[in-house]
Amino acid sequence: MSIVLEHVSYIYEAGTPLAQRALDDICLEIPNGQFVGLIGHTGSGKSTLVQHLNGLMKATEGHVYYNGEDIDAPGYDKKKLRSSVGLVFQYPEHQLFEIDVFSDVCFGPKNLGLPKEEVERRAREALNLVGLSEEYDKQSPFELSGGQKRRAAIAGVLAMGPKVLILDEPTAGLDPRGREEILQQIKRLQVQTGMTILLVSHSMEDVAEYVDRILVMNHGRVMLDGAPREVFRHYKELEEVGLAAPQVTYIMHALHEKGFDVDADATTIEEAAGEIMKALGRSETLRN
């Protein structure tokens, strides 16, 4: 059970002088249950990549396998794939259309042709998963606050019962409070359901705390792939492509260069503070 990409390339307007390689020979495996952050700036190909994973776009070259099956093989059930690999687009609240929140969340499972009770059971469950209680069920989705709209929209995809959830910039346009809330909700969701989650973002600081693995894309290629601390080690390369590692990384590397005996891989504030205190020989004194 996993997603495998084999030499996937995608070319916009192939065969014309305007041809542009949006994805360039991508090989990738995302095992089940992993929480992955996909980072890249606008135009790096990250949005194109995720649309390949649920068959909205078809690779110009190469193959995409879901659970060992080629999703572009003739006769492959794309509709079923889309219910297993849920994709939440950027600004998902712009896709809300029903008269109340509950009906909107029902839209997905209803399209799967499920019986009414099952549709409603799933909708309720999905709303619970994003933390919207029953009191919102009968409200118009257009009257919710920004963060609530986004939750409702995410529930709309969760109600399809996906095994993999892809979120394209789930924090875009939210304020710090909304950003933190959504990210924590997603983390809870992952812990509760064990779902594979792919979080697309252009902010390292946002995802660093939450994910197991970071994929960095640039010019349609996967530039770096590894655990957050491994990826941040390449902060200079990240800088060159217009991305930045979290500030802590810069501080720790700067201190390391100045002769401080610190572990430059520290990624959180607590780790960093501990390292600095240790390097200054202050950690024991504090304990005493």
Binding site: I269, A273, L286
Partner: peptide, 13 residues
């Protein structure tokens, strides 16, 4: 983060 870290260090003495 830099402000947070400085604050954390101050708290630790």
């Amino acid at each position: 983060q830099v402000t947070l870290l400085a604050y954390e260090l101050q708290k630790q003495g």
